[in-house]
Amino acid sequence: MTVYGLWIDYEYCTGCKACEIACQQEHGFDTEELGIQVLEQLMNGGQTYNFMPIPTDLCDLCTERVQREGRPSCVHHCMAKVMEFGPVEDLARRMSQKPRSVIWAPKPRPRDQRPFDGADTGGSAQ
């Protein structure tokens, strides 16, 4: 089976977070639900300053959308155009030519699978 993924050129991810909101819109997520999250890496006295989009376990690579339109909503809307979607093997060739890039191969877990589902928390945790 072909494994699909996201290739991200994090050298030029500007941290705009369009991917986060595009994903929320596509999937009808609530404010705090994210299918992809952009993390900031600003350290070493400023020597390292990167933004890194990381899919969460809600990411289904926009399965339905991809069948219809070919690419996930985050990839389509990315303002810096640093994301690509495809078979991981193809993306790996892309990555071999572009340092400071990364490939994610997400696999979703059920959306309603939450840690306290099996515990009696007295109603104090959701």
Binding site: C16, A18, H77
Partner: peptide
């Protein structure tokens, strides 16, 4: 929903969080 138009010369499909 709102979607950027891929062949529009201004944004080439992309959109910002506020538009999205």
């Amino acid at each position: 929903k709102i979607e950027g138009i891929a062949d529009h010369p201004y944004n080439q499909g992309t959109l910002c969080p506020r538009a999205l």
